[in-house]
């Protein structure tokens, strides 16, 4: 029996949970990267739980920190444009490919835009993925401006009338204002042709509390509409995403669980929450 269910058993009915049990629960939540603020808040609420409904109450406490916003991809009547953003190395390019494969498998036509014109071989990487999953990749000339690549891609997918355009962007740290301005520009320029329906922020499950700052600043710059949590196949549990949902009301939409194009799934709140606490 996991710590969580053991714990629940103890606070059921006549609570026999002792300080040690509370400490264990706290350690689980902290160890999952929920961060001290959210953890202490959850423990505080949990301490008021009494009676037989402990499981329901605890689940409800955790659930209350999830965003109530829909988790499906927001669709557009025109080409649905999805921008994928995030700090360096979180898994953006891989997620772009996975999302493309996912959408393609349900019969959609998908085009990718290689708007990371900065990192060495980033365009080649996306092109390799495009071939693998069988979708077209629009890329600019070497050293092209990311906004102009994205603009061309938008114009061409509009002509092609594809179902989706997914834009891969360069990794950037949120505290670099020039790079954030560049990202804003990419979005602005695309929106001359097509509305950007989704801006998905990719958060690496191993990320600690800095994930909150990432989400906050990316959201300010480009109105992030959802999160992709990657690398959940590792030992990290990705709890900072719950802290982000709780603090900023941005819903997690997809999870990445490996390096292959099918290691990707819609976010499922209940298994995520139980993953946070059952060790």
């Amino acid at each position: 029996m996991g710590i969580f269910s053991q714990f629940v058993a103890k606070i059921k009915g006549q609570s026999t949970a002792d300080p040690q049990d509370w400490q264990e629960l706290e350690a689980e939540l902290l160890g999952a990267d929920l961060g001290p603020t959210l953890t202490f808040e959850i423990i505080r609420s949990a301490k008021s739980i009494k009676g037989d409904d402990a499981i329901a109450s605890l689940t409800q406490i955790l659930n209350s920190h999830l965003s109530a916003k829909p988790r499906d991809l927001i669709m557009s009547n025109d080409v649905t444009v999805v921008m994928v953003v995030g700090v360096n190395g979180t898994g953006k390019t891989t997620s772009v490919a996975k999302l493309a494969a996912y959408l393609k498998s349900s019969g959609n036509s998908v085009v990718l835009a290689a708007a990371d014109t900065f990192r060495a071989a980033a365009v080649d990487q996306l092109q390799t993925w495009g071939k693998r999953v069988g979708v077209d990749v629009i890329a600019g000339k070497e050293g092209a401006e990311p906004a102009s690549v994205a603009f061309d891609a938008a114009t061409r997918t509009k002509e092609l009338n594809s179902d989706y355009l997914i834009i891969d962007t360069a990794g950037r740290l949120h505290n670099k204002s020039d790079l954030m301005a560049e990202l804003e520009k990419v979005k602005r320029v695309v929106e001359k042709t097509l509305a950007v329906s989704e801006v998905l922020l990719v958060i690496d499950a191993t990320t600690g509390q800095n994930g909150i700052a990432q989400a906050k600043i990316f959201a300010e710059a480009v109105e992030v509409t959802g999160l992709i949590i990657t690398k959940l196949d590792g030992s990290a549990r990705g709890g900072v995403a719950l802290a982000i949902e709780s603090a900023l009301d941005i819903p997690i939409k997809f999870i990445g669980t490996g390096e292959g194009d099918t290691d990707f799934a819609l976010f499922e709140p209940s298994s995520y929450l139980s993953g946070l606490i059952s060790d």
Binding site: L30, A32, D204, A205, T207, G208, Q209, S235, R237
Partner: peptide
């Protein structure tokens, strides 16, 4: 990665 959270211990150990 300097942004890494609590999993740093498990990963470093591994």
């Amino acid at each position: 990665d300097a942004m890494m959270g609590q999993d740093a211990v498990r990963t470093a150990k591994a």
